[in-house]
């Protein structure tokens, strides 16, 4: 009996260890191979010979632009819809419709967003290929995540805070800005970080709308090539494996550091908020 118990336990433990090991190998393998490629010159110089030599500065810049554009569009729409659904309307039909639509939107494969971006934004609206168009496409992908996480966060705020605020004569807008949003910010921030990191790791949705040029994008209306797309091109066309490892490592470091820093900030803020409330 005891033996069987121990056997079960070690079986599960080894399967968990194997799973985590496999995931560790993926990141470890790439970082170990790529870390020696990275130096200041790699980070801050232009690519040469279509990326087989030189650095990745334009790609880093494109990715930074994409973070800003995606944030600027998807945060207001995502959080705003969540505020409307959780605070303003009690119409079940609208609530269910918006929830259903956000579910549909979040389950659409990224390449379909790319198709839509190319056919509608680039060709139909004649906006041409640019980082801005790619930003719009990525925002569409980010909105449902931000909406869903924000809505859940608003729902977990106890009614009593809202009622207390109304009782002191505050208007709805004042209640939202002074009471609800500050409490909800850690949750909303988690959703935003999740959505943005997914957006900047996305290559399929942007590959046909961003223009994929190797020049430095001066403004957001220029063509560019974000890091994941650069990695894809380098690796699949076999241009340069060492630069591909370098690009992959930079991408992993960016994504991991955004996640890590935001987790720490959110935890810190949450503790402070909870300290005030108790």
């Amino acid at each position: 009996m005891k033996l069987k118990q121990n056997l079960t336990k070690s079986l599960f433990a080894s399967s968990a260890a194997f799973t985590l090991l496999a995931l560790g190998i993926v990141t470890g393998f790439i970082v170990v191979n790529g870390i020696h490629v990275i130096d200041w010159e790699f980070l801050f110089s232009l690519p040469k010979d279509s990326g087989s030599d030189g650095g990745i500065f334009p790609m880093i810049l494109s990715t930074v632009y994409l973070i800003l554009i995606t944030g600027a569009i998807s945060i207001p729409v995502g959080v705003g819809s969540a505020v409307y659904i959780s605070q303003y309307t009690s119409n079940e039909k609208i609530i269910n419709l918006v929830r259903f639509i956000s579910q549909v939107l979040s389950s659409v494969p990224s390449i379909v967003f790319g198709l839509f971006g190319l056919a509608f934004l680039v060709f139909f609206l004649k906006m041409g290929w640019s980082i801005f168009v790619a930003g719009i496409v990525l925002s569409l992908m980010a909105i449902p995540t931000i909406f869903q996480v924000s809505e859940v966060t608003f729902q977990t705020i106890p009614e009593i805070y809202k009622e207390g605020c109304y009782a002191m004569g505050a208007s709805k807008w004042q209640t939202i800005t002074t009471v609800l949003l500050p409490i909800a910010i850690p949750g909303i921030l988690t959703g935003i970080i999740l959505a943005i990191t997914r957006a900047i790791s996305e290559a399929a949705a942007v590959m046909y709308v961003v223009g994929s040029s190797l020049d430095i994008p001066i403004s957001i209306f220029d063509t560019g090539r974000p890091l994941p797309l650069h990695l894809y091109v380098l690796a699949s066309e076999g241009i340069s494996m060492s630069n591909a490892y370098g690009t992959a490592t930079v991408l992993i470091i960016i994504v991991l550091s955004i996640t890590l820093i935001s987790n720490i900030t959110v935890n810190h803020y949450q503790k402070r908020i909870m300290g005030c409330l108790n």
Binding site: V26, I30, S201, A203, L231, A248, L251, I252, L256
Partner: peptide, 12 residues
């Protein structure tokens, strides 16, 4: 955090 690793990295 591992869930956030870009899919193109897995491909690579």
């Amino acid at each position: 955090t591992l869930a956030g690793i870009p899919s193109v990295i897995y491909g690579f």
